[in-house]
Nucleic acid binder design. Structure first.
Length: 478
RNA sequence: CGGGGCGUAGCUCAGCCUGGCAGAGCGCUUGCUUCGGGAGCAAGAGGCCGGAGGUUCGAAUCCUCUCGCCCCGACCA
């Protein structure tokens, strides 16, 4: 029957993840450990995602710019916490041509250093603020355990860097961009997320507040899908971003930074994929519909392929990204499997039988549902399906997550269950000691303290001391 | 960095223990037949057996060194 190339999720989740990427032809390992070659199907998804993000950045008043890859060591080391946080994972260039450099150059692990030091030159007056800039870039972090898309040494991302006159403005920016991320995650990627703040121990090095969106993967583990940082005046002080205020006094600017990366593709895979491959949400699918003509012999091939192209033209006119798979060295079944592994939202089958009846067969990737539709209605049906599927995927993912989200008041119960995955809302006294204890006991961490929820004061589930506010989410994470 | 495993065809691997012509499946090329869920047959192409050194008449196989990768643990978008 079917020749399975993909381990099932139940057999080996981690293997499934890798198999799915290979089967969908999205990416492969590069010669350098931890580096990734992103192939057209994977990159196509990234391009769609970039566009959705970039449009929203522009709508919220940001402009794109580009800062260099190489950063002098002296600049990197200015912000103390920042250095400590990133130094262990920096790649450093020591030679230029055949000469050893006098000052080593860091390959950016993130661009606060180069951007903030530049802002210092750009900003003199309160009239120069705010500065709202984003850049699309690659960064390098020498990670120990790479995984395609989720954690690679080099990855693609965007990083927004803004500077403001007041802390209120900066804080507003931090939340505005977090909202943008949450919107893209849910309405574009169909990945439900929870917005919240990190605890001190999980904060970006140098930030006073790190906000994040957290998603739950199908194995119940959490994935940080985006972050937006309130940097306070820490970087302004380290990099001398000073301006003369409305009152004539010199003061330090308030800065923010925020980013999402190609990791989001990993989130899509682990949120929507099934044992047959990935399932790409319609808004991100490089092809939303593929028409497979079915034919016998050369004459019929020409005829059915022409008809298939006509269906594609209808689909495009209806705003659907579509193509016909007219390759003649593959039989229809092989094509069906190929596009299924790639996660194309809808497949159209069209052969002599359909031609005779004036219909086409439509198959949904997300539900597997097959329907027979009159030719004249194929384009409009599929155009409608795009929104149906998109919404269905989000609803399904949300239901999955909610089923694995628990309110827990018994630490022993938590310890015995957290290994199976899921989000656990427990009361927390706010002490780092309790976080550490949870991590030592279970490898789980506080993923975030959500913004939405009810204050629920009581006893800290871990130590029994007083706990106030919204319950944090404890979970194992990627 | 600790523990474990692996480097042989594009891919997955067998062969190694016990030294003696370089192998299989998949993929690829060509042809014919096929074509509504991963096609069949036939003929082909494809190799510095990770690298270096050693033992030997002879090394993919034995020995030494080296490089690289994968998996499991300590860091992370």
């Amino acid at each position: 029957m079917s020749r399975r190339q993909i381990k099932t999720r139940a057999e080996d989740y981690s293997r499934w993840y890798q198999d799915v990427i290979a089967a969908a032809d999205m990416a492969e390992h590069a010669p350098v450990r931890g580096c990734m070659i992103i192939k057209p199907w994977g990159y196509g998804i990234w391009e769609r995602l970039q566009r959705e993000l970039d449009d929203r950045f522009k709508e919220t008043g940001h402009e794109n710019a580009y800062f260099p890859l190489l950063v002098p060591k002296s600049l990197i080391t200015k912000e103390e916490e920042h250095v400590e946080g990133f130094a262990p994972e920096c790649a450093i260039v020591t030679h230029g041509g055949d000469k050893e450099l006098e000052e080593p150059l860091y390959i950016r692990p993130t661009s606060e250093a180069i951007i903030c030091s530049t802002y210092a030159k750009w900003i003199n007056s309160w009239r120069d603020l705010p500065i709202l800039i984003n850049q699309w870039a690659n960064v390098v972090r020498w990670e120990m355990r790479p995984r395609l898309f989720l954690r690679t040494l080099e990855f693609l991302w965007q990083e927004g860097h803004t500077a403001h006159e007041t802390h209120d403005e900066a804080a507003e920016e931090v939340r505005r961009m977090l909202d943008v991320y949450a919107d893209v995650a849910e309405s574009v990627m169909a990945v439900p997320v929870i917005k919240g703040s990190k605890t001190a121990s999980e904060r970006f090095p140098g930030a006073i507040d790190t906000t994040c969106i957290e998603a739950m993967m199908q194995d119940g583990k959490a994935l940080q899908a985006g972050t937006s940082h309130d940097l306070g005046q820490n970087f302004a002080k380290a990099y001398d971003i000073e301006f003369q205020g409305r009152d004539g006094e010199m003061q330090h600017a308030w800065s923010t930074s925020w980013g999402v990366s190609t990791r989001l593709i990993g989130a899509i895979i682990m949120t929507h994929g099934d044992d047959d491959g990935i399932v790409v949400p319609p808004m991100l699918a490089p092809q939303q519909a593929v028409v497979v003509p079915i034919f016998k012999g050369e004459e019929q091939a020409a005829e059915m392929c022409a008809d298939a192209e006509a269906i594609v033209a209808d689909l495009r006119a209806a705003g659907v990204r579509a193509k016909a798979d007219t390759r003649d060295h593959l039989r229809p079944g092989a094509k069906f499997f190929e596009w299924e592994k790639k996660g194309v939202p809808v497949r159209v089958e069209y052969g002599a039988r359909d031609k005779a009846s004036g219909n086409a067969v439509i198959k949904r990737r997300d539900t597997g549902e097959k329907m027979i539709v009159p030719l004249t209605e194929v384009a409009s049906t599929i155009a409608g399906l795009m929104t149906t599927i998109q919404a269905g995927m989000l609803a399904k993912a949300r239901a999955w997550r909610d089923e694995r989200t628990f309110v827990c008041d018994d630490y022993d119960d938590f310890k015995s269950r957290v290994g199976d995955g899921g989000f656990f809302h427990m009361r927390w006294c706010g002490e780092a000691a309790c976080e550490t204890r949870v991590k030592d006991d279970t490898k789980a961490t506080i993923r975030c303290i959500p913004y939405e929820g009810d204050d629920d004061p009581g006893a800290c589930t871990i130590c029994g001391a007083d706990a106030t506010g919204i319950r944090p989410i404890f979970a194992r994470a990627y």
